[in-house]
């Protein structure tokens, strides 16, 4: 996992998304331990309060859970939940910007559809 933070969104939200990416990619399998707040904050040179805020987003969504005295673990079923969440965000995050750039370039919906088909077969 390599993080490249941009300024567009608060850093704790970016951290939460990167951890989600790690879970979706299998880098942090279900029921495995994720790095501690200290490890995360040292690795990315971020304030531990910020790291905790990012981790807590995943706790609130039941993506990870706390084992007392042991640390944070990926919940069973987390991947499925995350897939659903990302799917529901797909339109907002990708299609909207795709459509606006396409309009700017005068690309029709049919042309985009052809490109999508090409992208899937590549």
């Amino acid at each position: 996992m390599d993080l490249r933070f941009e300024e567009e969104r608060p850093i704790f939200i970016q951290l939460a998304e990167q951890l989600e990416d790690g879970i979706l990619s299998g880098a942090f399998p279900e029921e495995s331990q994720i790095p501690s707040t200290t490890e995360i904050s040292v690795r990315f040179k971020m304030n531990p309060a910020t790291a905790l805020k990012g981790i807590n987003i995943l706790v609130e969504d039941n993506i990870i859970y706390k084992k007392r005295g042991l640390g944070m673990f990926v919940s069973k079923g987390a991947v499925k939940v995350l897939r659903e969440k990302r799917k529901s965000q797909f339109f907002e995050r990708y299609i909207k910007s795709l459509a606006s750039e396409a309009k700017r370039l005068n690309i029709s919906a049919d042309e985009i559809y052809e490109m999508i088909k090409r992208g899937f077969s590549a």
Binding site: I11, V42, F44, T50
Partner: peptide, 27 residues
């Protein structure tokens, strides 16, 4: 510094011109 702070928090007042580097470190 973050490791030390994470183990037992202290107050740090950091004056610096390298703002980008401390942007994520400071609260």
């Amino acid at each position: 510094m973050i490791e030390k702070y994470s183990e037992s928090p202290f107050t740090a007042i950091i004056s610096t011109h390298l703002i980008e580097e401390v942007a994520d470190v400071v609260e």
